[in-house]
Design a protein around this nucleic acid. Structure first.
Length: 495
RNA sequence: GCCCCCAUCGUCUAGCCCGGCCCAGGACACCGGUCUUUCAAGCCGGUAACGCGGGUUCGAAUCCCGCUGGGGGCACCA
């Protein structure tokens, strides 16, 4: 049995896109489920947009996600190099073979001339097609152009096949294309660098890729590639064109409609394992009665044929829910991971500065423990617990209106302040008896004290249990914040 | 405009290939209830879909045709 080899071939023109990560994941799953190889190839032939920095970032994003590769630009491999800009000689060799065989030809039209043709077509409202001017140039014609100093591109000559091109797609079946609709595509730029359709075919073949799993936006490229395989006498790999992930606006996921870079999700405090699990729920669903799977289960259950054809809409609410499932489980099994995720966010927002000392970690761990199930994504530590990390508590106006109104409030806060100041240490049991004691004393229902105190201490109406939160804050900070709240209530403008 | 793809609850999907077990199952979201000092989580319950029109058939979400709708592609980008 031939070895399964899949690849993901990002072009380093930006950070790893969420859709790209999803696509790469299915390639990875396909390889891992068949004990095959997963290859990373950098498609950087567009020199004007590619950067080394993005290449590094993409590799880093993959590492964070937890997808490993067997061959790639950093680790090398038997069929390298794995960066297209380093494969120039290979492309030149096969381009020449194509030209020699008459399957391709040099084209001397300039970008400006082609653009003018396109523009003319647009004006006349007819579809643009290459004029074919250079299709039948004689040696003399060529010499004349060359003498003028024109550097030719190389175009694929679409042959007369006398029938449709049939692309056998593993998830879409046979898709037919009429070659009459195909243009002689440029496969090599005038500067000698290859274009996507060509480099892709050469690389996939030379790298012995068995399954090309990619987005359906490439489906219409496939007949051109198919012609190149044919002209070179190569057997095309198996194709599987997955649907494209749509944004909430039902268009191809774009920056405008949602966060698109994988690292945006990392920055929000999503977990890689939750993301991968979520990926498996788009255009797939191993078991419709279940949502949560371990990675190894996904590898075990993966079957290319089970993938769907319809474009899924990226549902961030469901991702967040799933992340919450993982966070809760992690809280039990490995709370330090949750601490790490939260620390990353706290440091980025400047609420925690400097080294991640054991003390800092211990403190964050206490906060995390107290926040518990409220942490669905790392960023929730800010939503529910920013006050643990700053004394600059901002009172939510809504909360003030609801709970800091009326004369009883100042009184209960003041009384509580003195009681708290009087204790040795403020553990949660002490906090509770103090708060309830004050309520009873003043003839108030306990919630009539609890709510104002919460707002005074945290600025919010939402968050962890009051007594636990007081314990973490500690006596001195509680006293200081009660003081500040009382002062502010007496003269709101001053503060 | 041309080419190609797709079509089940608001969203992700199961069922479709091999018609009856489906007056369509699960999950997220939403709504209600419960627990409770708030929120979150949990638990219980609810609303909600086979795009439309023709066939075929005793019977169609499932097969066929048309329509409509949505998406992708039409670069010296990938």
């Amino acid at each position: 049995m031939a070895t399964v080899r899949t690849r993901y071939a990002p072009s380093p023109t930006g950070y790893l896109h969420i859709g790209g990560a999803w696509m790469a994941f299915f390639n990875w799953l396909c390889a891992r489920s068949q004990r095959g190889a997963f290859i990373l190839r950098i498609e950087d032939t567009d020199r004007s947009r590619s950067t080394e920095e993005y290449e590094r970032a993409i590799l880093e994003d993959f590492r964070w996600l937890g997808l490993d590769w067997d061959e790639g630009p950093d680790v090398g491999g038997p069929v390298g190099p794995y960066r297209q800009t380093e494969r120039g000689p290979l492309y030149r060799r096969y381009a020449r073979a194509l030209v020699d065989a008459g399957a391709a030809y040099p084209c001397y039209c300039t970008p400006q001339e082609l653009e003018a043709e396109r523009e003319a077509a647009r004006r006349q409202g007819r579809p643009y097609r290459y004029s074919g001017r250079c299709r039948h140039l004689t040696a003399a014609d060529r010499a004349r152009w060359e003498a003028q100093g024109r550097q030719p591109t190389i175009r694929l000559r679409v042959p007369d096949l006398g029938g449709p091109i049939v692309v056998a797609d593993l998830i879409r079946g046979n898709v037919e294309f009429d070659p009459a609709h195909l243009d002689d595509a440029i496969i090599v730029r005038s500067d000698g660098t290859p274009l996507y359709n060509f480099a892709n075919v050469v690389d996939d073949h030379l790298m012995r890729i068995s399954h090309v799993i990619r987005g359906s936006e490439h489906l219409s490229n496939t007949p051109v590639q198919w012609l190149i395989y044919r002209a070179l006498g190569w057997t095309p790999p198996a194709f599987a064109h997955l649907p494209v992930i749509l944004g909430p606006d039902r268009r191809k996921l774009s920056k405008r409609a949602a966060a698109t870079a994988l690292r945006d999700y990392r920055r929000e405090g999503y977990l890689p394992e939750a993301l991968l699990n979520f990926f498996a729920l788009m255009a797939w669903h191993p078991d419709p009665e279940r949502e949560v799977y371990s990675l190894s289960e996904l590898v075990e259950r993966f079957r290319l044929e089970d993938l769907g054809r319809a474009s899924p809409v990226f549902d961030q609410a469901k991702l967040t829910w799933l992340n919450g499932v993982y966070m809760r489980e992690l809280l039990q099994r490995n709370p330090q991971r949750v601490v790490d995720v939260c620390l990353e966010i706290l440091q980025e927002t400047g609420l925690v500065e400097g080294e991640r000392s054991p003390d800092v970690r211990a403190y964050v761990a206490r906060v995390v423990a107290v926040l518990g199930d409220r942490l669905k994504v790392g960023r929730d530590i800010l939503v529910y617990g920013d006050f643990f990390f700053t004394d600059q508590v901002r009172y939510d106006p809504q909360a003030v209106r609801q709970h800091l109104q009326g004369p009883a409030v100042v009184r209960s806060l003041s009384v509580l302040r003195d009681r708290v100041a009087g204790v040795e240490a403020l553990d949660r049991a002490t906090a509770e008896s103090l708060v309830r004691g004050v309520a009873a004393e003043l003839g108030l229902h306990s919630r009539e004290v609890i709510h104002p105190v919460r707002v005074a201490l945290t600025g919010k109406t939402v968050g962890p249990g009051l007594f636990e939160l007081m314990e973490v804050l500690g006596r001195d900070r509680v006293v200081a914040r009660l003081d500040r709240a009382v002062a502010w209530l007496r003269a709101p403008e001053a503060s």
